[in-house]
Amino acid sequence: MAAALRGYVENANGRAFAGLARNLFGNVRLDFSTADEEKSRMVSAMLGACRLTRLEADRHVVFGEHVTAGPNDPDAIKLLVQTEGSALFAQGGLYAPVSQNALVIYDPRRPYMLTNSTPVRQLLLQLPRHALPHAAVERLKRPFITHAEHDGMCRILLSLMDSTMHEIDHLDEARRLSVGQTMIDLVRAMMGAGLPQARPVVNPLDLLLQRIKEFIDIHLARPDLSVATIARRMGCSVRYIYRAFEVEGLTPSDYIWDLRLQRAAAQLQDAGGYAGEISGIAFALGFSSSAHFSRAFRHRYGISPSQWRKARIFVGSVR
């Protein structure tokens, strides 16, 4: 059965399971060997900055050697709760059995392997990296493991994740965002135990905006750079990207195009002025055509790119 999109909820059954897993979790490889892949089921939904997934599958192995290999792969910390079955999680020289109601928080940037030795049911929560304190992320050089039997905060989070999946079709956007933030707060509390609290609390949206701008700066030349692409890389919803830009007073798309025009204006100062070179600057900054570039440039600066170049306007006037 092919993966389906129902609003903000994604589903996959059978052989579509592995494909949706790669799409949502990054460059993971699943090996079912002789097990029955058709028994696989997955339901996944965005909760503001988080993604919550419930899955069940026959025994299989997950290889996460290069999870964030590409710019479109989600850069998120992962939290796994085993609700049924047994598994073995291996990362950073640590081999940890994962039994029922065990919780594992790990950094998928670091290679890992999850061996599900029996049929399993699992809940998986993805949190944007910026949502956790730096000290907590540094702590994930090795996985953070706890168990609901011994950790009250773990029991609360497990219960919230499970009940959310049962009610997911009945939650509006505001409630999904609120639940996602509550889950982030619970994870921060669990991981913050024993960590120094000297640093002031930083607004997660401020950190997210900083990381978005860094990502845009690196990938500005990509014609397909979009809000959806950025959201996937940041591991959060499109709506959350827009929320991060509210302090800027403009949309993410406006920011991208304005930055492209600023770069173009600066580069035109050193350009020879002939059409081919101006077109080269436009294409190198992600514009789809010379005409598109000229229209946008004239709208932004009031003159054409060639007139700007000839006037040799001092770059400091570019705001």
Rank of each mutant, 00 (worst) to 15 (best):
G302H: 09
P252F: 05
P252N: 07
Q210F: 09
K213N: 11
S304L: 15
R309T: 11
I278W: 12
T229F: 06
Q267L: 13
R263H: 05
A221L: 00
R222W: 04
L225M: 03
S304C: 09
Q197A: 12
S237W: 02
L207Q: 10
P252G: 06
R211N: 15
V247W: 00
I256P: 00
D217R: 09
L225D: 11
S290T: 10
C236A: 04
G286A: 06
G249L: 03
S289H: 07
I303M: 15
F215S: 09
E246Y: 00
V238Y: 04
F245C: 03
D217C: 01
A271T: 14
A271L: 12
R211H: 14
S226W: 02
S289Y: 05
N203L: 05
R199S: 10
G302M: 13
L207G: 06
Q269P: 00
C236Y: 03
Y240K: 08
E246R: 08
G272I: 03
S306M: 14
V238K: 14
V201K: 13
R239T: 10
Y242I: 02
S237N: 01
A296W: 06
A221T: 06
A271P: 02
Q267G: 04
T229L: 09
R309Q: 15
F297S: 11
E214V: 04
R309E: 13
I241M: 11
G249E: 13
S288I: 09
Q197H: 13
V238D: 11
P204Q: 11
A264N: 07
S304W: 14
S226G: 07
C236Q: 04
F293T: 12
R300N: 07
P196I: 13
V238N: 06
S288Y: 05
Q307A: 15
D254Y: 00
I212M: 14
A264I: 08
Q197N: 14
S288V: 14
R243N: 01
A264W: 05
V201P: 05
A228W: 01
L208C: 09
R300C: 12
R295H: 07
F293G: 05
Q307K: 15
L220N: 00
R243P: 00
S289K: 05
Y301K: 15
H292F: 02
N203W: 08
S288W: 02
Q197L: 11
L208N: 07
A228D: 08
P223R: 13
L209N: 06
R239M: 04
H292A: 10
Y255R: 08
E277S: 10
I256A: 01
D258L: 03
Q210G: 14
E214M: 03
A284P: 02
S237C: 02
E248M: 08
Q210N: 13
I218C: 01
G302V: 10
I212G: 05
A275R: 15
R295P: 03
R233I: 00
R239A: 09
R260P: 01
F293S: 11
P196K: 14
L261P: 04
R222I: 00
R295T: 13
R298H: 09
S306C: 13
P200D: 10
C236P: 03
E248L: 11
S279R: 13
A198N: 14
Y240V: 03
R295N: 07
F283Q: 12
E214G: 10
W308F: 15
P223D: 09
T229H: 11
